[in-house]
Design a binder for these strands. Structure first.
Lengths: 155, 155
DNA sequence: CTGCCTGCAAACTCTTTGCACGAAT
DNA sequence: ATTCGTGCAAAGAGTTTGCAGGCAG
């Protein structure tokens, strides 16, 4: 889905839910969809402010759940304190993450079997699966060669 | 592995690392291994204090990483703010979690294929896998029937 | 106009840390 | 005797929330 189509979907979602289309929400959308890598709430705040400097941290935190619920963003929690977000692209919803143990860089890969696995395993327990996540911690090439990652500065 | 054997392993691990075997650490061990379900740091504090009332929150938080590193406990982060812990039993280390969306109850299941998957996927990216986690969110039976779980009180 | 949205700052939750005392080796 | 471990309380990080004013519908 193109950015334009997603933007329309966002506005439609807001309207459907009786939520208002504000400049701040649109600025946050634009900032989020300009990112090609995963980003944090704080990083999103910086980028959104570059578009509309009236955007506050509170509005970022209030808007992220809306964008997640409407499946425009995917929330990724790698257990490192803060959450990461990424626009839902053409990869679909069945993705696994490979996370570098040193720099926390997140690689996403399609993992279509996850859904099958969720169903299989849940039904054994008599539960109905809702979603699943698979994360692999790994050492990236640079880390193995030099003992640290180039983009470790992120931490 | 029996509780007694694990207790010895814990003491051996402490000695090897030049760490001291204190009453507090043993009380925390005993409290942790008396639990049959997943527990939080706060719950562990309560149980450990029932054994040795001098145990403090700080010591709980300092001891949990030691027990995790020594593979006596498994740390489970389901992205709900606090972390859960459970003694590593006979299930082995390749386990997936099924988490109820309502009460956050955690079911563990053996998932031997996870390791294979981690290797496959990581090597495609040129990374060396370290560990993997697979979590499935699901609705438990009670939730589907009554709209809420009996043990929801946990939250 | 009405009521949702907003920014601000304070509050919150979970976890970590500095310090001086206390206990294990 | 050393030196590490401990409890206490304060600090820290990320996120949430109450409030009074502002803007969308």
């Amino acid at each position: 889905m193109s950015v334009e189509a997603s933007r329309e979907k966002f506005q439609a979602y807001l309207s459907e839910k009786g939520l208002r289309v504000t400049n701040q929400r649109l600025a946050i959308f634009d900032a989020a969809f300009a990112q090609k890598e995963h980003f944090t709430a704080e990083e999103l705040l910086d980028h959104a402010r570059a578009i509309d400097d009236s955007v506050s941290r509170a509005t970022i935190y209030r808007t992220l759940p809306i964008m997640t619920e409407s499946h425009l963003l995917r929330e990724v929690d790698i257990g490192k304190g803060e959450k990461y977000y990424l626009r839902v692209g053409d990869t679909g919803s069945q993705v696994a993450q490979v996370v570098c143990v040193d720099c926390d860089k997140i690689f996403e890969i399609s993992a279509p079997f996850m859904e099958w696995y969720g169903s299989t395993v849940s039904s054994k327990l008599g539960l109905k699966p809702v979603s699943q996540r698979l994360q692999v911690s790994a050492q990236c090439i640079a880390f193995r060669q030099h003992g640290r990652c180039p983009n470790r500065a992120r931490k």
